[in-house]
Design a protein around this nucleic acid. Structure first.
Length: 411
DNA sequence: GCCGGACCTAACTG
DNA sequence: ACAGTTAGGTCCG
């Protein structure tokens, strides 16, 4: 049982280039678990990867499974532990997964210079970086995300790994499983089992998508949809063409092909493109982003009064025009700033008890509230306890609620 | 192309 | 207490 020594290594990195406490929890990945105070872990590429971070360094550790009973066939994919230095491999994996190449500080400056709203909201949400996740894992994870919340999605993904993914090892007593293969999820029994596990209507989507990928298509098909500038771990980057209004050609093709899968609509397809396939111009327009587009970017009126397919494209194109090739990165900053789980950071200013109602005459003479009616009330509430957070019993925070009188949830 | 309803679940809301 | 709403939507008619 010679588990290879699991030592911590470190990498100089500022919190403005990457903040794991935000990036790993903002809903782009559902796999990271808190394995200790200020420590996050998940199984990745046949090992358990753990992160810690301080003001100057990122600390990482890899725990490998005890050496395999039988060596895998020589043509086996990625799982084969390399004979050469594991540390070098893990460092390369960390750099790849965390997508450390782009200069994030510079990008924030660029977005802020083009967009006053970004400039206003981003300062409290620095270091949010788009990860390079496994495409298959991103696909299934975001199929789970429909009509759902991050905490429940994480639980579902955890269950998928626990029941269908290979065990990689333990951190303390906690087992860590890798993400299941399409074949593992293509078993006919999967749908019923997932329903028992509380997946609801998503059980069918997952089972069907797994069957299609495992039989009709393949993992290679999915991975070939990757941005060639940002390929899966171990492949050489190639140029990906010019940005157009609707995104690069490869992005549009990837988005289009993903739409054919069950449970994959425009939003989920964009999440897979952005978080799993490396298409940085992809802008998933979900309920949050739609709210943001209405509140801060003058959408929600006239032609684009509800989030139809046409409006979806218009919003995404608008953000691409505004933020450029890494629009999806900027989008994720504003998205995170809008998440309730991080709302404590934006409550600094209080005392806004204002009400603005714009009324517009319709052709038929009826009056209709056109602008989002902003009634910001200050509400005191107990901060929702994070699952594995220590007990802060009577911490009281203020939360700003914004109500709109109509079109609250145009879907 | 657009609209409305159904779809699973669990926690939160008034 | 308890029905309604929401949480990173999608599908169908």
């Amino acid at each position: 049982m010679a588990v290879r020594a699991a030592e911590w290594h470190k990498l100089p990195l500022s919190l403005t280039e990457l903040c794991i406490n935000t990036t790993l929890r903002c809903g782009q990945s559902f796999r990271w678990r808190k394995s200790a105070e200020d420590e996050y872990s998940m199984a990745l590429h046949g090992r358990i990867l753990s992160f810690r971070q301080d003001a100057t360094h990122l600390h990482y550790r890899a725990i490998f499974p005890p050496s395999l009973p039988t060596p895998p066939p020589s043509n086996a994919p990625s799982l084969a532990p390399s004979v050469v230095s594991d540390d070098d491999d893990t460092l390369a994996l960390v750099r790849h997964y965390l997508n450390l190449e782009p200069n994030l500080v510079q990008l924030y400056e660029q977005w802020a210079s083009e967009d006053p709203n970004f400039k206003k909201r981003a300062p409290k949400f620095t270091g949010i970086r788009i990860l390079r996740q496994d495409p298959w894992e991103a696909l299934i994870g975001f199929i789970c995300s429909s009509n759902n919340n991050i905490s429940r999605i994480s639980g579902m993904v955890h269950n998928l790994c626990k029941h269908y993914g290979p065990l990689i090892g333990h951190v303390g007593d906690e087992p860590y499983h890798d993400f299941p293969t399409p074949e593992a999820l293509a078993d006919p029994k999967v749908e019923a089992h997932l329903k028992e596990l509380g997946f609801g209507y998503r059980a069918k989507y997952i089972a069907k998508t797994a069957q299609i990928v495992a039989t009709d298509k393949s993992l290679a098909w999915l991975e070939e949809l990757c941005n060639p500038e940002s390929p899966v771990f171990g492949q050489e980057p190639k140029p990906a063409g010019q940005l157009e209004m609707g995104g690069r050609e490869g992005y549009r093709k990837a988005h289009d092909e993903l739409l054919a899968l069950h449970g994959v609509g425009p939003k989920v397809a964009d999440c897979v493109c952005l978080f799993g396939l490396g298409w940085s111009e992809s802008v998933p327009v979900d309920t949050h982003v739609w709210q943001i587009a209405q509140r801060d970017y003058k959408f929600g009126k006239g032609k684009h009064s509800s989030l139809t397919a046409a409006t979806y494209t218009a919003v995404a194109n608008r953000f691409r025009a505004l933020w450029g090739k890494e629009a999806g990165w900027a989008h994720s900053v504003l998205f995170t700033a809008d998440l309730k789980a991080f709302s404590e950071r934006v409550v600094a200013k209080t005392e806004v008890k204002e009400e603005v109602i714009t009324v517009k005459k319709e052709e038929d003479g009826t009056e209709e509230i056109e602008d989002v009616k902003k009634i910001e009330t200050i509400k005191r509430k107990r901060v929702k306890k994070e699952v594995d957070e220590p007990e802060h019993i009577v911490e009281v925070k203020e939360e700003v609620l914004t109500r709109s009188s109509r079109r609250r949830r145009a879907r």
